[in-house]
């Protein structure tokens, strides 16, 4: 792994250069909320340590995306695929969200690979950034993620004093750094140590310690436990937790048809919605809210692990922060671990 330095004042000029070559997707602020959006000017970028409302998965797996158009005008059938992706730089991704890409990769890159996801994934260079603070809802350490870890990024930045320590982690990252080498400087002694020290400080800031050992196996015996019904009593059945989750990847595919033309698209779906498992016959295998809520936690904490050998939660804390009725996955984990069978 290569290590470089980037002076703080050179970050925006570097991003500005990148913007000329790539579509630059970066955190921007709107009404005091953070979103990852394509930017036209680097002045729009909000630097700092906040957590976006909608996770950056949106970039690889948009909430609504068109798959193809069709036309049956004149009796024939014409299909036109809308598969396209611009070379992009995804800037400012925090360690928890970097891990989430690995979780999504396990789903979308397995055979048969999802071409829409893959194409965007291939054409995007990810620049990660270390956290400088730990939010009260964060618990990424439960999944072995450190707030200064760059795994999953192509290039990872960690703020250390007046510079960013730059870790070049992949061939894609190497290419990028080589191409813009005039912005970077050689690593100096002490910076890596300072980053390690930051890791120690941040690790002490987690408000809740979460342990997930043995959780998938434990959950297996708790499918019919009354706890789920009890937990679901306050659940609203809305889609907030799934839509703000960086690893939730369920989607629905629907057509829009106007006369002889139409479009097939896919869009996010949420297992908390009544219609998620509704059959055409009218039968709903998860008719009760507790079944849907249970499914969400089983998927996050067990199924994903069993299927892909990677945890389905990254500890970003978005669902904890945004659930209107305080359903706290950290508390669910602790309760489940303590439940008798």
């Amino acid at each position: 792994m290569d290590s470089k330095l980037l002076k703080k004042e050179k970050l925006l000029p570097l991003l500005d250069e990148l913007r000329k070559e790539f579509l630059l997707v970066a955190p921007v602020e709107e009404d005091a909320l953070l979103f990852y959006r394509p930017v036209e000017s680097v002045a729009e970028i909000k630097l700092g340590s906040g957590r976006s409302v909608v996770p950056p998965k949106e970039w690889f797996f948009p909430q609504a995306e068109s798959l193809y158009r069709y036309s049956t005008e004149g009796g024939g059938l014409v299909l036109e695929e809308t598969l396209a992706a611009t070379p992009a730089v995804l800037f400012g991704i925090h360690p928890c969200d970097l891990r989430s890409f690995a979780v999504l990769d396990a789903v979308f890159l397995q055979e048969p690979v999802d071409r829409y996801y893959t194409l965007r994934r291939e054409k995007t260079v990810i620049i990660g950034i270390s956290c400088t603070a730990v939010c009260p809802e964060c618990f990424c350490s439960a999944y072995g993620i450190s707030p200064v870890e760059g795994t999953g990024a192509d290039v990872h930045l960690s703020e250390v004093g007046a510079v960013y320590m730059v870790e070049v982690l992949t061939p894609k990252g190497k290419e990028l750094v080589a191409r813009y080498q005039e912005f970077f400087e050689d690593q100096v002694a002490g910076v890596a140590e300072a980053k390690e020290a930051r890791k120690e400080t941040l690790s002490g800031q987690f408000t809740v310690r979460v342990t997930v050992d043995g959780l998938p196996a434990k959950l297996g015996s708790l499918f019919d436990h009354p706890y789920w019904e009890e937990l679901s009593r306050r659940c609203l059945g809305c889609g907030i937790c799934t839509y703000v989750c960086p690893t939730c990847h369920c989607f629905d595919i629907t057509d829009v048809c106007r006369g002889f033309e139409g479009k097939r698209f896919r869009c996010w779906d949420a297992c908390l919605f009544r219609d998620y498992t509704l059959h055409t016959s009218g039968h709903n295998p998860r008719h009760a809210l507790y079944q849907r809520l249970r499914n969400r936690f089983f998927h996050k904490l067990k199924y994903n692990h069993d299927r892909y050998a990677i945890e389905g939660c990254v500890g970003c804390g978005r669902c904890v922060a945004l659930c209107p009725v305080n359903i706290d996955i950290r508390e669910v984990i602790a309760t489940v671990r303590g439940l008798g069978e």
Binding site: E30, L33, F35, V54, Q63, L236, G237, C238, G239, I240, Y243, V244, D252, I253, T254, D255, A270, F273, R274, D275, L278, T280, P324
Partner: peptide, 28 residues
């Protein structure tokens, strides 16, 4: 920036229809 999570509907005591006009109850 609406995510269509429908939390505003689910929480609303005036949204009391047993079947909402916006529920995707029919297949696509």
């Amino acid at each position: 920036r609406c995510l269509r999570c429908y939390a505003c509907r689910e929480v609303c005591p005036a949204c009391s229809c047993t079947q909402c006009a916006f529920e995707q109850a029919v297949p696509g």
